[in-house]
Each structure stands twice: as C-alpha cells, then as structure tokens.
C-alpha cells in the first residue's frame, strides 16, 4: 500500500485522509487533540477560505475551522 504523507493544508475540498501525527509543542498537541483531532481519525476537508484563510475540516461529522499554520502541523495520509 502506498501512503502519501501530506499536511492538512495540502488537501483539497472533499478530499479525505487519515491523521498520522501532530507536530509541534506539547501545548499545541494537547489543544488540538482535546478538540477531537486525533491520530487515526478520518478527516475530510469541507472548504478552504481564500487568501490563506482557515480550513474547515470534518471529523466524526463535527466541523472545526483551523488556521493554516496549525493545519500545516497536522500530518495526514491519503489512500
């Protein structure tokens, strides 16, 4: 099986991926996980706001808006 490792910012709307790991400090990781963004979860991108705006993702049917800087520290795998 071929895994393509990407960050959340690389995903296009309607694309789904599995969260592999989080990169960043302890506080960042804790904050992200406590919102339900966990390793192993399937994440779908709903939309990306223009001009570097936040990305809206859906995990377990729950939507969260997350800035691109944070999203770029969330590593996912497609396929």
């Amino acid at each position: 099986m071929i895994h393509l490792e990407l960050t959340l910012t690389n995903l296009q709307p309607k694309q789904k991926a599995r969260i592999l790991r989080l990169e960043g400090g302890f506080g960042f990781q804790k904050n992200v996980r406590s919102r339900g963004i966990l390793e192993g979860k399937i994440v779908e991108v709903i939309t990306r706001q223009p001009i570097g705006g936040p990305i809206v993702i859906s995990i377990d049917k729950r939507n969260t808006a997350i800035g691109r800087g944070m999203a770029s520290r969330i590593i996912v795998a497609v396929g």
């Binding site: 904050n31 729950r62 939507n63 997350i66 800035g67």
Partner: peptide, 8 residues
C-alpha cells in the same frame, strides 16, 4: 495574534 481554531 494566533489563528482561528473554532468548533462549528
């Protein structure tokens, strides 16, 4: 000025 991180 941190980024938006908001549950919808």
């Amino acid at each position: 000025s941190p980024e938006l991180f908001l549950e919808i």
